[in-house]
Amino acid sequence: MNPNNFILSCQGLSKSFTLHTIDGRHVEALRGIDIEIHPGEHVALAGSSGAGKSSLLKCIYRTYEPTSGSVFLRLRNGENVDLTQVSDQEMAFYRGRDIGYVSQFLRAEPRRGPLDIVTRAGVSRGMDRETAREAAVVSLRRLNIDEKLWDVHASVLSGGEKQRINLAAGTISAPQLLLLDEPVSALDPNNREAALDLIGDLTSHGVAVLAVFHDLEAMERLASRIVLMRNGQVEMNGTPEDVLKVLAEGVPS
């Protein structure tokens, strides 16, 4: 693996919050994170809650604005950009085209059905409407969303259904980088299986994945590498076997 052939490279990424409403308190979420992900690599983030896993995803996606450091992303056209330096408009554009982000929850959507939501996601990735629709159909079938629900407003669907719709929307056209924040937490075993299968497929097609899972089993199954985080820093960065072994022994806290 060519070390320069990364999709994502975070260098010295730090994030701190100043809470003006609480006496100007200072909170450090990330302290100098260095991490690289290559095409087709699935990196899982591990660590206890509050270790900074979600913060890292949000800093990359710029839902949090990093305080210092760089986030280099290789774009589809092969160009490298530092996401901490691009304009908001450019960031919005890269979000649409190059980065997929699947969070635990479905973002507030208007009265739209799953098919419509996923199709629109495809269109925003630059697919034409017909292609996007076909891809949405495939994706929804694969994630076992009952066809009868395809035009039902998503707001009335169950948490598990919403999560799968979210996943379908985030993965409809393979992004350069896929960020996953507990994408299967609300799914029953069968649907969880289908979802993990879908994610695994993307990795094999060259997508770089950075994921947070709430269970070790998913990590074990999908991750090509695990980064163990603690207190906003990288504690360990290694093969799943090595890291899981440490985890099994119990992380000193």
């Binding site: 710029r62 839902t63 949090y64 604005e65 908001d88 960031m91």
Partner: peptide, 12 residues
């Protein structure tokens, strides 16, 4: 000013 989700989650 900023991306809307950033302003909501990380207002400065």
């Amino acid at each position: 000013s900023g991306l809307t989700d950033r302003l909501l989650e990380d207002p400065h």
